[in-house]
């Protein structure tokens, strides 16, 4: 797969040996300078003092992290207790992202399976149909979802006309709307890796299971799922990670009650009410969680591969 560190096989070629440094240099410079250095600088900023009109004063302090985890009262002189405001937002983001992942899996696995088991010609068309929405601008997809589910919108009208609902739908600005938005945004990310795994699945395994009197669903649970697990795990990570830090879906579809990490961070850098060191600290916490998830995944991959 293109994703792994190239070792051996067709990529062991050393035709341009000696040119590696020259070829890598632009990439190193660009990503090093405009990605790695900024992230390190952000880590430094999270330990600096807040400047009240945005920006920082270069004086080291733990105030940003203190503000995140502890509540010392309005004037900062009370004994510290745990600050729940931000932990609640993180907890909400984690369960929203987790639920979106689960829903995407429940819908995505059968879809990927169904597509991968079509005849090659129609398979290409099904796959094409599932990928097109992924290429549509995420902002436009989110706005479209909002248009559809808003009060008095087409879905609302339809339900009213069918007599299933009387009055306003009342989904927008709730956790449910955000959940729908996340599910809608990242569903293709679940389907594609599972599809790739199912495509490589050896149906002799299913035949063997059937010969030994396993039912279809038994085969699914005991044989197929364990075999295609790498694709499932990859899909789950591709949905969970962007959902956790998502901005557009929570911002456009959720209100103050459905606030997630992305909006919390964004708020710290907009206008005079912002707090840059705090925004940097929240970003650090988010990045730590994501890196943790990716590290566990990489470890499992390395173990499974050997």
């Amino acid at each position: 797969m293109a994703g792994g560190v190239p070792t051996g096989g067709g990529s062991g070629s050393a035709i341009y040996r000696g040119a590696a440094a020259r070829l890598m240099l632009p990439g190193w410079l660009m990503i090093g300078l405009f990605m790695l250095v900024p992230v390190l600088l952000m880590a430094v900023y999270s330990f600096l003092t807040q400047e009240f009109r945005g920006g920082v004063i270069w004086r080291p302090t733990l105030a940003a992290y203190d503000h995140f985890f502890l509540n010392r009262g309005l004037f900062g002189d009370e004994p510290p207790v745990i600050e729940w405001t931000y932990l609640t937002i993180f907890w909400r983001s984690i369960w929203q992202a987790g639920l979106a992942t689960l829903l995407c899996l429940i819908v995505g696995f059968p879809t990927a399976w169904f597509i991968a088991t079509r005849a090659p010609k129609s398979r290409a068309i099904w796959l094409f149909l599932v990928t097109v929405p992924y290429w549509v601008n995420l902002l436009i997809r989110t706005v479209s979802m909002k248009f559809l589910i808003r009060d008095g919108g087409p879905l609302n009208e339809l339900l009213n006309a069918l007599g299933l609902l009387d009055g306003a739908l009342g989904i927008v600005n709730t956790n449910l709307a955000v959940q729908l938005g996340l599910f809608y945004s990242y569903l293709p990310f679940m389907v594609l890796p599972i599809y790739a795994a199912v495509e490589r699945y050896d149906f002799a395994l299913s035949e063997a299971a059937a010969d030994l009197y396993a039912g279809a669903w038994e085969t699914l649970a005991l044989i197929i799922l364990p075999v295609v697990k790498p694709g499932i795990v990859a899909g789950c990570i591709l949905v969970f990670v962007p959902s956790l830090g998502a901005f557009l879906a929570p911002d456009l579809l959720g209100g103050a009650k459905a606030f997630m990490i992305g909006s919390l961070i964004e708020e710290q850098f907009k206008g005079a009410a912002g707090n840059w060191p705090f925004g940097a600290a929240v970003s650090m916490v988010l990045m730590t969680i994501v890196m943790g998830v990716l590290l566990v995944y990489a470890r499992a991959q390395a173990k499974g591969g050997k």
Partner: peptide, 12 residues
């Protein structure tokens, strides 16, 4: 995460 990249770039 994208929002982290955004913050880091702004700070940089």
């Amino acid at each position: 995460p994208e929002v982290v990249t955004a913050v880091a770039s702004l700070i940089f």
